[in-house]
Design a binder for these strands. Structure first.
Length: 364
RNA sequence: GCUGAGGUGGCGGAGCGGUCAAACGCACGAGACUGUAAAUCUCGCGUCCGAAAGGGCUACUCAGGUUCGAAUCCUGACCUCAGCA
């Protein structure tokens, strides 16, 4: 039977759910009380960043990232698999991927190695409600052979991750209702037989859910729904299906129809800081219809034409920006470059996404 | 009134004889952003024609002048700022 809830330390969260990215233990520009006001039910934090920048001792002291942030919602930790691509494969930080793990050099002299085991162990320290296995990202430009290589490594790492996870759970005496969820990640790029194979092998290892890994957008900007479908069809009914890094509102709507029920993405928060707000094509919250075409549009706040506009950004929103401030005031804040502009825009966009999920939850 | 400095695009500010429709910054406009080294990046920004390549026109306060050629040199006018009366 399909999952109806995501179990967190702080209570059950209805699915489908969207957790914005608090990569380094903070939603950029927001504190936890701001975040709560957006009615965001959970967040995603990142192993790769927090492992280097925060460390396990602080997490031990505070008993996890949730307590550290004083956040009472759900938490998921990403493994660092995506950072292998975005940081190392892009050449920004020297490093390489081996069968053992990811070796990288944050500075010229230092050397660190992130293994599947270390990733899981650190995520347990993070104390998140779901941990994600370290995966080897399939570069979208990969040949079939390269993609296959990343799939084989991903499967091998998934086995090691699962073994480490069971070992830690046993030593901590965590039973099945106390332990966090563990998610496998499907790689394989655009090659459907690889996606299918990876899905099958991960299911054999046994997880609570599967993530749609890799980069789901092609050169033309089109979303790869086919791979999502392959994963959804290959996964047991009670598995969570997680669209890692997905996505645009319409992509979340489409994937949720296919059975995907967990999402995270930087878009609402990054777009907010970059001056792009999401606005429903509706007069009121009740009238929002996320299944109609063009159910939302972008609002760019810092335009001359809004300098004297005393209306609110959206009447189909109950965030502090829309309830309290005018377009003119927001435009002013963006124009002078005050941090408050990014903060209010982030609050608004996160409320847009939490409303989106509320609408999707009601319709299933 | 005298002495000195100066007047460049929406603004600030380079340029000081040709490679100038004029650096750079701001402002303005358009676009990008998908498991965050992005509160960032890209493009446009006199005007007209062109999809583009490119071409035409008008421009560096105004009026004359020197020169093959002037935002750049000379003369005058007007205006601004600083110091002195």
């Amino acid at each position: 039977m399909a999952r109806k809830f995501f179990k967190s330390k702080n209570g059950n969260i209805p699915v489908p759910l969207f957790f914005p990215d608090a990569t380094r233990g903070v939603i950029k520009s927001l504190d936890t009380s701001d975040l709560e006001k957006t009615q965001t039910l959970g967040i995603l934090v990142n192993t790769f960043h927090l492992w280097q920048e925060l460390g396990g001792d602080v997490l031990d002291k505070f008993e996890g990232i949730g307590n550290f942030m004083d956040f009472k919602g759900g938490t998921i930790s990403d493994s660092g698999g995506f950072q292998v691509m975005s940081v190392i494969k892009s050449g920004n930080v020297k490093g390489k991927v081996t069968d053992e793990g990811v070796i990288f050099h944050p500075t010229k002299k230092s050397k660190k190695i992130l293994t599947p085991e270390k990733s899981i162990a650190f995520q347990i320290k993070l104390g998140t409600d779901m941990v994600v296995v370290l995966d080897d990202f399939t570069d979208p430009k990969s040949s079939y052979e390269e993609a296959k290589d990343s799939v084989m490594r991903t499967i091998s790492w998934a086995k090691r991750s699962k073994a480490e996870f069971e070992k830690i759970c046993k030593s901590k005496k965590l039973n099945d209702t106390e332990r966090p969820y563990i998610l496998g990640v499907v790689q394989g790029g655009k090659y459907q037989d690889l996606r299918e194979y990876c899905t099958k092998e991960l299911v054999k290892i046994g997880f609570d859910g599967l993530g749609y890994g890799g980069w789901p957008i092609d050169e033309n900007g089109d979303f790869d729904f086919e791979s999502a479908k392959t994963i959804a069809e290959g996964a047991p009914e009670d598995y969570f299906l997680y669209g890692l890094g997905v996505g645009k509102p319409e992509e979340i709507v489409a994937l949720s129809k296919m059975g995907f029920n967990i999402f995270d993405c930087v878009l609402p928060t990054r777009d907010a800081r970059h001056g792009r707000l999401y606005v429903y094509d509706a007069i009121s919250i009740e009238e929002i219809d996320v299944y109609k075409l063009n159910f939302y549009s972008f609002y760019t706040p810092d335009k001359e034409k809004y300098f004297k506009d005393d209306s609110s950004v959206s009447t189909a929103c109950d965030c502090v920006l829309c309830k309290r401030y005018s377009k003119a005031y927001l435009a002013h804040l963006f124009r002078i470059g005050d941090f408050t502009a990014g903060r209010l825009a982030t609050i608004h966009n996160l409320r847009f996404y939490s409303l989106l999920m509320e609408k999707l939850q009601k319709s299933i």
